[in-house]
Simulated assay, not measured.
Amino acid sequence: MAAEDTSKVCEAHPMIGGDGPNSYAKNSTFQQGVLDVAKELIRKAIAEKLDIDISSSSTSFKIADLGCSVGPNTFFAVENIVEAVELKYQGQGMNSQIPEFQVFFNDHTSNDFNILFKSLPQNRRYYAAGVPGSFYGRLFPNASIHIAHSSYGIHFLSRVPKAVMDRNSPAWNKGHIWYSNSTDEVVRAYKAQYAEDMECFLHARAQETVHGGLMLLTFPGSPAGFPHSRSVVGLELLGSCLMDLVRKGVVSEEKVDSFNMPVYSMSPQELEVAVKRNG
């Protein structure tokens, strides 16, 4: 059977590769902190929600880390999941039935997979494979993944909303690089892009994940009713700095107007709506 058409226009903005001083590998301690905070929550979810009978019909237990970048955070996340699954088996007296683990590291095709593979832990307890492609489309065969995980990834949109880049659109985001402190039309454009992307993300995962499997997501978000003007203050500060450079003649205004961050800070309620819509 031919693979399903997963064509979706996606922009690729991978993290900086290599292992130099400006690389993601050397500048991702904040994201590691997110994994530290989520560690026990993920273990609890696996202990309470994972149906270990799902692996009885497979020779291996398959884990996908979506938006893995280059490490080391992805290895920390995967190790935590493997340990939690092993504990689940041991807690039910099934030590002899603990399966082999296969881990799929996924990111855009332009991700630095060479550094990722060079950095793989020597004492890992899983078989590793790289899967290039956007997680807003299909990546795996039907019902083949037992746990789909993504940390600090799904707040990145598949692309900048078209309307905010269109000079003739009421949502043209002139003088800003994001929707914070921008017009309602810009906010709606970002919301619409987020809704479209999450529909694609959930549709793909629903087909790829086995019945009884889990999807584990951590992401930067916003509380319900939280004003968009206060979301991710760092991005607003960056935009303000760029406009200062425009006023000083260091950067052209046209260049700043052409740059927007493809990031959206969803609320838990917005994600819940997306999940219910997906069914």
Rank of each mutant, 00 (worst) to 15 (best):
K248D: 13
V263A: 11
I98P: 12
G175N: 08
A129T: 14
G33P: 00
E196D: 15
D244M: 06
E40L: 13
K8H: 13
L41Y: 13
L116K: 00
Q193N: 02
A77H: 05
P121A: 06
N142E: 14
D166I: 06
L235T: 06
K162N: 12
E196L: 15
D53F: 09
Y127T: 12
L35R: 08
C68Y: 03
F201D: 05
S180Q: 14
F105M: 09
H176M: 11
F104A: 11
T109A: 14
I147C: 03
N278D: 10
A192N: 13
D166K: 03
G20W: 03
I145H: 00
E86K: 15
P14H: 04
A64W: 01
L202A: 11
V250G: 00
D51N: 14
L202D: 08
P227E: 04
E79I: 00
A148H: 00
H203G: 11
A204C: 12
V187I: 11
W172D: 07
S23A: 14
C68Q: 01
S134L: 09
R43M: 09
L41D: 09
V70I: 15
G33K: 08
H228W: 09
K8M: 15
P223L: 12
D53K: 13
E86Y: 01
C68E: 03
A47L: 06
T59H: 12
P170S: 05
M215R: 06
Q90M: 15
D184M: 09
S23E: 06
S28L: 01
V263E: 07
A206G: 07
D257H: 05
T6V: 13
I98D: 05
Y127R: 10
V70N: 02
E199P: 00
S110G: 11
N168K: 13
G239T: 02
K8A: 14
G33V: 05
L139N: 06
A12S: 15
K174Q: 14
S258T: 01
A143D: 12
S110P: 03
A84Q: 04
V37M: 09
T109M: 12
A195N: 11
E270L: 09
S240L: 07
F30Y: 13
R138W: 12
S23H: 01
H155Y: 02
F105I: 12
V233P: 02
F105C: 08
S57C: 14
C241E: 10
Y194Q: 12
Y190C: 05
L242V: 06
N80F: 01
K248T: 04
H149Y: 13
R159L: 07
E83T: 08
M1C: 07
C200V: 06
D112R: 03
P21K: 10
A148G: 08
S57Y: 00
